[in-house]
Simulated assay, not measured.
Amino acid sequence: MGTREEEPECDPNYSGGCVPIASDVDCAGGSGNGPGYVDGVVRVVGTDIYDLDRDNDGYGCD
């Protein structure tokens, strides 16, 4: 059997894209320093633990 790359674990507090589970996550292209990054807009469906939704409209990295 061949080896398979593991899918990254995604934080269940967000939908519409994969927010990696990391010590800190920032929006790609922003001023944050990671180590995790989100590429594109995600919807906050739980607690916004990474503070991606700065304007509190329910969407992060928009």
Score class of each variant (00 low, 15 high):
Met1Lys: 12
Gly2Asp: 12
Gly2Trp: 10
Gly2Gln: 13
Thr3Lys: 12
Thr3Cys: 11
Arg4Trp: 01
Arg4Met: 08
Glu6Cys: 11
Glu7Pro: 05
Glu7Lys: 15
Glu7Leu: 14
Glu7His: 04
Pro8Glu: 10
Cys10Ser: 06
Asp11Ala: 15
Tyr14Arg: 07
Tyr14Ala: 06
Ser15His: 03
Gly16Pro: 08
Gly16Glu: 12
Gly17Met: 12
Gly17Thr: 03
Cys18Gly: 09
Cys18Phe: 06
Val19Trp: 02
Val19Leu: 05
Pro20Phe: 07
Pro20Lys: 01
Ile21Lys: 10
Ile21Leu: 10
Ile21Ser: 03
Ala22Gly: 05
Ser23Cys: 05
Ser23Thr: 13
Asp24Thr: 07
Asp24Ile: 00
Asp24Ala: 15
Val25Gly: 00
Val25Lys: 00
Val25Cys: 09
Val25Trp: 02
Val25Gln: 06
Val25Asp: 00
Asp26Ala: 15
Ala28Trp: 13
Ala28Thr: 09
Ala28Ile: 05
Gly29Ala: 07
Gly29Pro: 10
Gly29Ile: 06
Gly30Glu: 08
Gly30Ile: 07
Gly30Asp: 13
Gly30Phe: 04
Gly32Trp: 09
Asn33Ala: 14
Asn33Gln: 14
Gly34Ser: 14
Gly34Leu: 11
Pro35Met: 10
Pro35Asp: 03
Gly36Phe: 01
Gly36Asp: 03
Gly36Met: 09
Tyr37Gly: 00
Tyr37Leu: 13
Tyr37Asp: 02
Val38Leu: 06
Val38Gln: 01
Asp39Trp: 12
Asp39Ala: 07
Asp39Phe: 11
Gly40Trp: 07
Gly40Ala: 09
Val41Arg: 15
Val41Ile: 14
Val41Thr: 15
Val42Phe: 03
Val42Ile: 13
Arg43Gly: 02
Val44Tyr: 00
Val44Arg: 03
Val44Ile: 15
Val45Asn: 08
Val45Met: 04
Val45Gly: 04
Gly46Tyr: 05
Thr47Ser: 13
Thr47Cys: 00
Asp48Thr: 08
Tyr50Met: 05
Tyr50Ser: 04
Tyr50Cys: 00
Tyr50Ile: 08
Asp51Gln: 14
Asp51Arg: 10
Asp51Glu: 14
Leu52Phe: 05
Leu52His: 01
Leu52Cys: 01
Asp53Met: 05
Asp53His: 11
Arg54Trp: 07
Asp55Cys: 04
Asp55Pro: 02
Asp55Ala: 02
Asn56Glu: 13
Asn56Gly: 11
Asp57Ile: 02
Asp57Phe: 01
Asp57Lys: 01
Gly58His: 06
Gly58Asn: 05
Gly58Pro: 02
Gly58Asp: 03
Tyr59His: 10
Tyr59Thr: 09
Tyr59Pro: 00
Gly60Ile: 03
Gly60Met: 07
Asp62Cys: 09
Asp62Thr: 13
Asp62Trp: 08
Asp62Lys: 08
